[in-house]
Every structure is written in C-alpha cells, then in structure tokens.
Simulated scan of single mutants.
Amino acid sequence: MKSIEKVLVIFGGSFNPPTNSHFSLAEQIYCSFDEVEKVIFMPVSDAYPKKDLLEAKYRVKMLELVCKLNPHFEVSTLEVDSPVLLSSIDTLRRMQKAYEDHKIWLVLGTDNLKVMTSWTCYKEILEGFRCLVLEREDDILEHIIEQDTLLKPYKDRFIKMKESIHSDESATLLRQKLREGKSIRYMLPDEAYFYIIEKGLYTVVPTSHNKIGNNNIL
C-alpha cells in the first residue's frame, strides 16, 4: 500500500486582522486533502510595504489565539522574525529546510496567479513547490494557465481547490467598520475580536462594545 506524503500548506498574508474567511479556508484545505498535515499561517513582517499594516506582534497574537484551538493550524513567525524582508521563494526554502520530510504547498489566489510570471522567482517557486490555488470571483484556473504561455509548462504544479469560499468578510471591510465605530463581532473569531477590543486596535471603539469584552485575554 502506497503511503500518503505529508504536506504542510503555507498560508501567507497580512492577516490585518484575520477573518472568519481565513480560518474557514484553512479548515477547508485541511479537510479536502488527505495528505495535508497542517495549515501554517505565515503573517508578513512589519517591513512589508502595505498601507495601514498593524504591528506584527498584534497580528501574530490574534492568529495564535485562534490557532491554538485547532491542532491542524499553526502560526509561523519566520517572516516576522527575519531582519530582512523575505521573498516568497526564501520563505518556502527555509520552511522546506525546517521540514525536510514534508512537501510544501503554497496557497495562492487567482488574483496573484495572474501576475505570478512578473515575479523574479516564479520559476523557482513552481519548480520546487506546488501551489494550491483558490479561484476568486469568476476566475477559472485552467483558463488562466492556458492563456499564459509562461505558466503552461508548469500546469501540473497547480492544485485546484475543490470549492471556493465567497465572503464579504474582508480585512479591509473590518478595518473600515472599526474606523466608523461599528461592531465587527461575528465577522471574525471571538478570540481575535475580543483581543482587538481589549487592546483598542485599529481605532477607539464605543464603550458599548467594551461591555462584552473578555477580561481573560492578556
């Protein structure tokens, strides 16, 4: 009987803040592929050039509060702890070195897939690793690959998610609601929500929201 290879899925992002959609997708990934042992959340470092990026220590903490409740989830601070901004291939190679007995897959949305060949390291990524692709909106993975002559030779390096999660619970929307003083409860896990309230992250929230805060969160 052929043994199933062990796979770690790297789920990178700013997680600013992490939403229900992030964790729903991670759970779907774990449940959809027998070979997947864990989904590892990889938050970007403070050096990542993105507007309104909350300090990494808070984003990491929110992820940890949620992931500790699921044995198949893990948080890596590889990029956060790096003294230099790591490229995708640097991150993947370091993870592969740390987990030599595992295969490494990278979560990739079709929005990034469309521009992947503009990355200087795209060939190295596709030659050394596989990409687990999440189709966004009306995108179709096969069509994107077929229309890109640079991606076509690597079509076997892509794995298509069997289902897609469509949600309006984007981190951008949550940040906007917080700035407007609106509640975001139930749009992200309670562990992350209460932490945001407790620490007053993103904006000053109304006193009425604090009444339902969790004093056990440090």
Rank of each mutant, 00 (worst) to 15 (best):
L25K: 13
S82N: 11
E35C: 05
A98G: 04
L54R: 04
T203W: 14
L141Q: 03
I212K: 03
P17W: 08
N214Y: 15
K97W: 00
N214A: 05
D52N: 11
K177P: 01
F158S: 05
E180Y: 07
S14I: 03
T77M: 08
T203A: 14
K177E: 14
D46V: 06
K38R: 15
L86F: 14
Y99H: 15
T110L: 03
G181W: 14
D190W: 02
L92P: 01
D46F: 10
P189D: 13
M1K: 05
T203P: 00
S183I: 04
E5S: 10
K162W: 02
D81A: 13
V44H: 01
L188K: 02
V75P: 01
E64T: 00
S45W: 09
D168A: 14
A171L: 11
S164D: 05
D190T: 04
V39W: 11
K50F: 12
E198C: 03
L201S: 07
V107N: 08
L113E: 11
K57Q: 09
S118F: 06
S3L: 10
E180P: 06
A98N: 12
V7A: 03
K38M: 06
E146D: 09
L174C: 10
G200N: 09
V115E: 12
S208M: 12
W119M: 11
G109Y: 02
H102Q: 12
G128R: 12
I104W: 08
S183D: 11
N214P: 08
T91N: 07
T91W: 10
L92C: 05
R94M: 12
V133F: 01
L85Y: 15
L178D: 10
L150V: 10
Y193K: 00
I89M: 08
D34C: 07
E55F: 08
F194D: 09
G109V: 05
F73W: 15
V133G: 01
F11S: 02
T172M: 08
